[in-house]
Simulated scan of single mutants.
Amino acid sequence: MKSQFLLDPNITFLNHGSFGACPKPIFEEFQRFQLELESDPVYFIQQKQPKYLKTARENLAGFVGCQAKDLFFTANPTFAINVIMRNIKLNEGDEILSTNHEYGAMDRTWNFYCKKSGAKYIRQEISLPIVSKEQIIEEFWKGYNSNTKVVFLNQMSSATALIFPVKEICEKARTLGLITIIDGAHVPGHLELDITELNPDYYTGTLHKWMLAPKGSSFLYVKPELQNDLEPLVVSWGYESVAPGESQFLDYHELQGTRDVSAFLCTPKVVEFLEKNNWKEVSGTCKQVVLENYQRFCDLLNTKPICPITTEFLGQMASVPVTTEKPAALKELLYSKYKIQVPIMPLNGNFYIRYSINGYNTQADLNTLYHALEDIINTTDLISR
């Protein structure tokens, strides 16, 4: 499988979770669209691009479980959350209930909004180690009060790689009349996803991570009854269009002037590649490798698991606690000396070695990481035990 990817064979690549990795057939499709664009930019953008985008949305919608008319492509989830943030109308003292496990760019987005609006962003503590799904739910709702108006939650956290019970939280939030916004950056192509069944108000996810699309391909789903009130983050030709398309929602958010949307247009090829290569089975094998190695790394680093070692909480990546006072130096040494690309993730004053496993990885890759950490423990002061 590794031969189908463009990854440097001299690097042990254990960081798919950050920016993904694109297989050659999909990357070739990406370049094909770029060449087609440049061969006749006017005809491509004015005539072909709208049809290609519609086909791409239809393919994506079938994959993530919603209607094609209810989502549009974005470059990344940060853009998507900014669209929502610019449209949420909260009053001073209103609260956005979140967790202390959210992605840093999301925290910054909501902090920016709160400074402007007077609302409050509540990073409710979800304590580690996790012992059960019920614990997460109970701790999360301790942050709720009469001022809570919005629930914002990652379905899978970046730093701790933990799967959160968003379905149960969305269900309760609906009974309380709260707006639900789910950051599913790590979910499509990684975990089972049916947006219609999950039923959030807003959902964003990436294609360029676990769906293996080219970089800069993500989406925002918006519940139909909220679409007409969602103003565009970028005002362009779709606003008060002289040639309206199938919906104001898509006109507002798809038409943003001249830009290269080739990454979006690869979606049919992305879905085809995943299906052709039985990626659900590949993903299942990868998840098993993650589970089988987790305790082994905890033992090496003399730390404890942050959750039960099951697929209820872990997918194709896992974060192992590491005691270090020099996380940047540790990451740099792993890369420069041992040629291992793996992140040291910071969160709430703690650090985690987060390894990702995808179809191009083998047990040998994790053995390489294990032996490198052994060597670092024995020869440096970067890791405390």
Rank of each mutant, 00 (worst) to 15 (best):
L162N: 11
L162P: 09
L162Y: 11
I163Y: 02
V166D: 10
V166M: 04
K167A: 15
E168M: 04
I169W: 12
I169R: 07
C170K: 08
C170M: 08
K172T: 10
K172S: 01
A173Q: 05
A173G: 05
A173D: 07
R174A: 14
L176Q: 14
L176H: 12
I179Q: 09
I179F: 09
I179N: 03
T180A: 03
T180G: 02
I181R: 02
I181G: 09
I181T: 12
I182H: 11
I182A: 09
I182V: 15
D183G: 02
G184P: 01
G184N: 06
H186G: 03
H186A: 05
V187W: 02
V187Y: 02
V187M: 07
P188D: 11
P188M: 04
G189R: 06
G189D: 05
H190Y: 07
L191N: 06
E192D: 14
E192I: 09
E192H: 09
L193M: 13
D194A: 04
D194F: 07
I195D: 08
T196K: 15
T196Y: 13
E197Q: 12
E197I: 10
L198S: 03
L198I: 05
D201Q: 07
D201M: 07
Y202I: 14
Y202K: 11
Y202W: 09
Y202E: 10
Y203F: 15
T204Y: 00
T204Q: 06
T204A: 15
L207A: 05
L207Q: 12
H208Q: 02
W210A: 05
W210R: 03
M211Q: 14
M211D: 09
M211W: 01
L212E: 07
A213Q: 02
P214N: 02
P214G: 01
K215R: 10
G216R: 00
G216I: 00
G216Y: 00
G216E: 00
S217M: 00
F219S: 05
L220T: 10
Y221C: 13
Y221G: 06
V222Y: 07
K223C: 05
P224T: 13
E225I: 11
L226F: 00
L226H: 02
L226T: 03
L226P: 11
L226E: 06
Q227D: 12
N228G: 08
N228A: 07
D229Q: 15
E231W: 08
E231T: 10
P232M: 08
P232Y: 11
V234C: 09
V235R: 08
S236N: 14
S236W: 09
S236D: 14
W237P: 00
G238E: 09
G238C: 11
E240A: 13
S241Q: 05
V242Q: 08
V242C: 02
V242S: 13
P244F: 12
G245K: 13
S247L: 07
S247G: 07
S247E: 08
Q248L: 12
Q248S: 12
F249G: 09
F249N: 10
L250E: 12
L250N: 12
Y252Q: 06
H253G: 04
E254V: 08
L255D: 01
Q256L: 13
G257S: 14
G257D: 13
T258Q: 10
R259K: 14
V261W: 01
S262V: 00
A263L: 00
A263K: 01
F264L: 00
